[in-house]
Design a protein around this nucleic acid. Structure first.
Lengths: 201, 201
DNA sequence: GTCTATAAGCAGATAGAC
DNA sequence: GTCTATCTGCTTATAGAC
């Protein structure tokens, strides 16, 4: 076995710094999600990652670039949404609710989703990312469904997503904030079902 | 006629400074709505009001107090929501949509609603105000309706309100951002109707 | 790769002149 | 009531030592 002492991952970037860099990535995502773009400072991110503030600058150059690098969603999520058009239409509301809530509840994607939404009111790129998710990924789903007013349906579904995220994770309104994920899916499913494939009026 | 040279309003505060103070109030509301709590600085507010920055401090003491004073909703709006319980239940969804959208479209209350929601991700008091509107005003409406799960219904209706506000006025997702108010009412009415009085599952 | 020192700018808030 | 001057602290970002 020629495997070296460091951890896995053959492809991509060089060895050595990758561990520290990953700690910074997670710390930055967490800070953006918890306090938003403006209040997530190099210092607070570095402290959370247990590194020196200058190191964050050294790796990412500027705060804008740091946000850009760190707020990319795993490619699977957008794809999972569009793929819903393939399955049975009678349950598409529930299946969309499951995909969305799964994204919310997974810690890695939750940091990114909440970070985007919490920063959307402060940083133009964050607003653009939210806009793309709503008018992009969801619109591709409704377009594939061959229903009337696909853009209106997509934006109304998007309203649910950003509304739930804001109320549950940012503002923390009860009883939504403490609700089990399964209950959120149950409540969202019929709303999505109507907005996606049933008559709108 | 003994009416003096100054403008109307017999009751309340003394004359003289009230004009400048009102200009600061509107400028502060506008800034909070457009750029949020952190980026709405004494300097930017003063510039927008055409006054000296120190004057803003002189009138309101601190930034927190300024936000507190200026983000109070006209008492009528919360009352109008609760009063909806009195009218015909078959149209309660549309009537709630009309009240909400009227609040959004009136410039004075729009500055406050959007200011609260845009600042909710940055300032704890702003988040608290949003929480009160959702779990307070809307919950009093659902409690008066004598339906099952009033708190869940209230928070789901609140999700619509904050979701629409965020998507239409903060993130500006199309086609929602450019949609006429009447169309927004049409789209919201059936959603509210179901969330308020129809079976949830 | 990691850290110290520091530059340059803007924030909220205070003191006091007029 | 209005404005000038200023204090203190924090921000992003750079230069350069080790």
């Amino acid at each position: 076995m020629t495997m070296s002492t460091s951890s896995g991952g053959r492809s991509g970037r060089r060895r050595g710094t990758t561990q520290t860099r990953e700690a910074i990535v997670v710390a930055a995502q967490t800070q953006f999600a918890e306090v938003g773009y403006d209040r997530a400072t190099f210092r607070s991110i570095a402290t959370a990652a247990g590194v020196d503030p200058a190191l964050v600058v050294h790796f990412f150059g500027s705060k804008e670039q740091l946000f850009h690098e760190v707020m990319k969603l795993p490619a699977g999520l957008a794809g999972a949404i569009v793929d819903l058009a393939q399955g049975p239409r009678a349950e598409i509301g529930r299946r969309l609710a499951e995909v969305i809530v799964a994204g919310f509840e997974n810690p890695a994607s939750q940091r990114i989703i909440v970070g985007r939404i919490r920063s959307a009111s402060q940083h133009p790129e964050a607003a653009e990312l939210v806009r793309q998710a709503v008018a992009g990924d969801l619109a591709r789903l409704t377009a594939a469904l061959d229903v009337d007013q696909p853009d209106v349906r997509a934006v109304l579904a998007g309203v649910q997503v950003v509304g739930i995220a804001l109320a549950r994770y940012v503002v923390r309104v009860e009883p939504l904030a403490s609700m089990p994920a399964e209950r959120v899916i149950e409540l969202l499913a019929p709303v999505f079902q109507r907005l996606l494939v049933e008559p709108l009026t």
